[in-house]
Amino acid sequence: MPEQIIYLVDDDEALRDSLIWLLESQGFKVKGYPSAEAFLPEIRPDMTGCLLLDVRMPGGMSGLELHDRLRASFCTLPVIFITGHGDVPMAVSALKKGAVDFIEKPFNDEALLRQVRQCLAQEEENRARRRQDAEVSRRLGQLTQREREVLDLIILGKLNKQIADVLGISIKTVEVHRARVMEKMGAQSLAELVQSVMAIEGVNRG
């Protein structure tokens, strides 16, 4: 599993140094940057961890602009904005664009650490879900056309007899295809099969 890194982008050197010390004292791996421009070369879609990002950095690219760049680069790194007095409306705007949270200066160390831990735990969970979805997609790609047709009808809640009638095949043949679908998809139960496929295809049958 890739190591999670806390990236810190803030033009205030004293604040940056104190935050790095605080986070490293808790066992986190931290990388600090004095500007959004300095951080840009680091951006990759597969980054893990989280980003602590100052909203307002005079003289260069703002935190909001960097956040937009991240999303444009398909980077899913969660972002916690650091805001000064009067920047809350900007932070709220960032939340609407997908930022995880924001903290106001001066902030409480314990509150910051709690937010970072929650952020990292959520990021790890999201990454595990993406890996699982990718595996389900890979397995779906291994199904034959007929197996996929059977699977689609299973997801619609059809019984073997109904599937046989729709596809014009025998119930025995449906049972064979159904068993192969379960095996190829690595599903232990019908519920697991349906849930895994619906999760990646965004099917809402509520």
Rank of each mutant, 00 (worst) to 15 (best):
V136D: 02
V100C: 00
V9Q: 03
P34F: 05
V150R: 07
D10Y: 08
F102A: 09
I82L: 14
L22Y: 06
I5L: 02
D17A: 14
T48I: 01
A179D: 12
H85W: 09
G186Y: 07
E3N: 09
D17E: 15
E37Q: 12
Y7Q: 05
S35T: 15
R127M: 04
E192A: 13
C119V: 08
V174K: 13
R56E: 09
A121D: 10
Q145S: 10
W21F: 11
G32F: 08
L112Y: 03
S189C: 04
L15T: 14
L51G: 08
G59K: 09
D152R: 06
L120I: 14
I80F: 02
L95G: 02
A91F: 08
E104W: 00
D165E: 11
V166N: 10
I6C: 03
V176R: 14
E149R: 14
I103Y: 09
D101I: 06
R178W: 05
A38V: 10
E3W: 00
P58V: 12
L151G: 07
L8I: 15
A179Q: 14
A111E: 13
M198S: 13
A199F: 00
L15R: 06
V100W: 06
A36D: 08
L140N: 08
I82T: 09
S62V: 05
E110T: 10
L159H: 11
I43D: 04
K184W: 05
P106C: 09
T173Q: 10
E175F: 00
A94N: 04
H85I: 14
A121Y: 12
G32D: 06
L159C: 01
G157Y: 02
K172P: 00
V194L: 01
V136H: 03
G186H: 10
L113S: 07
E135W: 04
P45T: 14
V136C: 02
D68S: 02
G49A: 09
E124L: 05
Y33W: 11
S170L: 03
M1P: 00
R44A: 12
R69E: 11
A199M: 01
G206W: 10
Q132S: 09
E42C: 07
L23P: 00
R44G: 01
L156F: 05
G60V: 12
L193N: 05
G202I: 11
G86R: 12
Q122L: 12
F107Q: 02
N126I: 01
M47K: 04
A99I: 15
A187F: 07
K158V: 07
A179K: 15
S18A: 11
A14Q: 13
V116A: 05
E201D: 13
R130S: 06
E3A: 11
C50W: 01
G202R: 13
L95I: 15
A94H: 03
M185D: 09
M61F: 03
R56N: 14
A121G: 00
K31M: 05
G98P: 02
S25Q: 10
P41L: 05
L19P: 00
T144P: 00
L151I: 14
Q4M: 02
E135N: 08
R16M: 11
L52G: 03
D11T: 12
T173H: 06
M1L: 02
H85E: 12
P45G: 07
D12T: 15
E175I: 07
D11K: 08
S196D: 04
V194Q: 06
